[in-house]
Amino acid sequence: MNEESILIKPVFELGPLIITNTVLTTWAIMGAIWILAWLISRRLRIEPGPLQTAAEGIVSSIEDAVAAVTPQHARRIMPFIGSLWIFLVIANLSGLIPSVHAPTRDLSATAALAIVVFLSTHWFGIRIQGLKNYLRHYLAPSPILLPFNLISEITRTVALAVRLFGNMMSLEMAALLILLVAGFLAPVPILMLHIVEALVQAYIFGMLALIYVAGGIQSQQLRENKQGDSHA
């Protein structure tokens, strides 16, 4: 392992698209998830086995977490947020596999996920509240705050992408530096920290995405509830 191994390298080109090792790893992760999900869904029974129990536990936990934040729209948001958590956990932990680099140490991948979160926030907000009601929340509590709201939308998206990229990149970089300085097996404690950090970053990214989406959905409802309380 050398310092070039951490860099993003193009593997091949597919027309105008350059396929990097990040994309290949992502495809591999997607393939593994697809096969595992297919195996699980093929053998679902009313009385579950160990694998089905684990799958049901994961899905139920994700649904409960989403329902705790936005109970009325949990079923609609849960596939998106759950996919973020599952993908990020596997993608972050994939860096522990020798000669495999986590896709999330690539700013292009984390930026793509952040953009997806950004777009999905508006998508769910407009779908659920309508365009007019959704756009109105940028003027709350005062139209003066409109520029700040717009800047907040951009900065939090950038922060979402950079936070995940920076943490995962730094973990791999630290492991590489320790390996270069101290030698074989020395980075093992760092790798254990990698596990914790991977889970924490996946949780943070998914939870922030959930809060952003729920905030976009519930801002109009909160305003209506406040108006209802004031009239009462």
Partner: peptide
């Protein structure tokens, strides 16, 4: 640290 638009688009589609 550079942004690859191919990777960016493919990652969006992949997700």
């Amino acid at each position: 640290m550079e942004l690859s638009w191919s990777t960016f688009l493919l990652e969006i589609i992949n997700f």
